Simulated assay, not measured.
Amino acid sequence: MDDFGLIIALLALVTTFIFLIIGILSLVRKSGKAKKQFRNAGISFVVMIIGFVVFGMNSEPTETATPEPTTEEEKDVTDEESASEEQVEEEEEVVEEAEKEAEKTPQQKMIEGIQALFASKQAFDSGSYIKGDIPPGEYAFVSFAGSGKYYSENDASNNIIDNNNFDSFGYVYVHGAGNIESQGVLISTVAFPTLDVSGAKQIYEVLNNVTDYKDAGFYKVGVDIPAGAYVLESYGEGYAAVLAGPIGKSDIVDNELFNGRYSVTVSNGQYLQMSQSKISQ
């Protein structure tokens, strides 16, 4: 509708010229109609003027509405919307972190869990330590891909208190008396609940991607294996020992070198050390 005045004005302009031309021709021919044609041209001209005026009025720019000041209620709504958006972003971040955590392998989670214990001195990486570095207590010794298997602790005179070459995993008692050499990771038995494990065997299985491990190792009875009678089968010359405690407090209850099969009975709280052999039943 804004262009309606312009359309009328243009049509009137055309008709004005037409009536003027017809009027001039009538005047030349003396047909007596020239006066009428000039009048029609005048009317068309007036209509043209009116059309342009109407078009000009409709084409005037409209004023931009000035936004009213934000009221307290509107401000509260805006704040609520911003808070809601922040909450959504936080929830999305939580979901994203949960998805990343779900994608981690059990091995990755175990490694991260053990590393987190380093700061609280509940776990210690492979390496050499001096008196006071490692608090006294019982620790799981766990080897992993690329690590060694040797552990020893010396007294203040640098005499060996106890040492052992672990086939896979085991337990040691740290006296805090002198230098310690550990080629595997040491994890305090107190920290087992934090890692959601029951013993050294379970940590070893997760770190090395094995299940139902029954091969050579240093088992804690009642934790890694239940109490009872076991048949061991050697590959080469096997060794089995029943001990009253971990390395460092390892009084031998019974031990034997064997080739083939060997039967042993163990009780809760004892330790079963096996080398070059496995539990067959």
Rank of each mutant, 00 (worst) to 15 (best):
K149I: 12
S152T: 13
E153Y: 11
E153M: 07
N154I: 11
N154L: 15
D155T: 15
A156L: 11
N158H: 10
I160E: 12
I161H: 08
I161E: 05
D162H: 08
N163L: 09
N164L: 15
F166T: 03
F166Q: 08
D167W: 07
S168A: 10
Y171G: 01
V172W: 11
V172K: 11
Y173M: 01
Y173H: 07
H175E: 14
A177I: 09
A177L: 12
I180W: 10
I180N: 00
E181Y: 11
E181F: 14
S182N: 00
Q183M: 11
Q183Y: 10
S188T: 06
A191E: 00
P193M: 13
T194E: 13
T194N: 13
L195E: 07
L195H: 06
D196M: 12
D196K: 13
K201Y: 01
K201Q: 01
I203W: 00
Y204R: 05
Y204N: 00
E205G: 05
L207K: 01
N209H: 09
V210N: 00
V210Q: 06
T211R: 10
T211L: 03
Y213C: 07
D215W: 12
D215T: 10
G217Y: 03
F218H: 09
F218S: 05
F218C: 05
K220H: 08
V221N: 01
V221K: 01
G222S: 02
G222N: 04
G222A: 06
D224T: 05
D224V: 03
I225M: 00
I225W: 05
P226V: 13
Y230P: 04
V231H: 10
E233H: 10
S234G: 06
E237G: 10
E237C: 13
A241R: 12
V242W: 00
V242T: 10
V242I: 11
A244R: 14
I247Q: 07
G248Y: 04
K249P: 11
K249A: 03
D251M: 15
D251N: 15
V253P: 13
N255H: 08
N255W: 06
E256R: 09
F258W: 08
N259M: 15
G260I: 03
Y262C: 11
Y262V: 01
V264E: 14
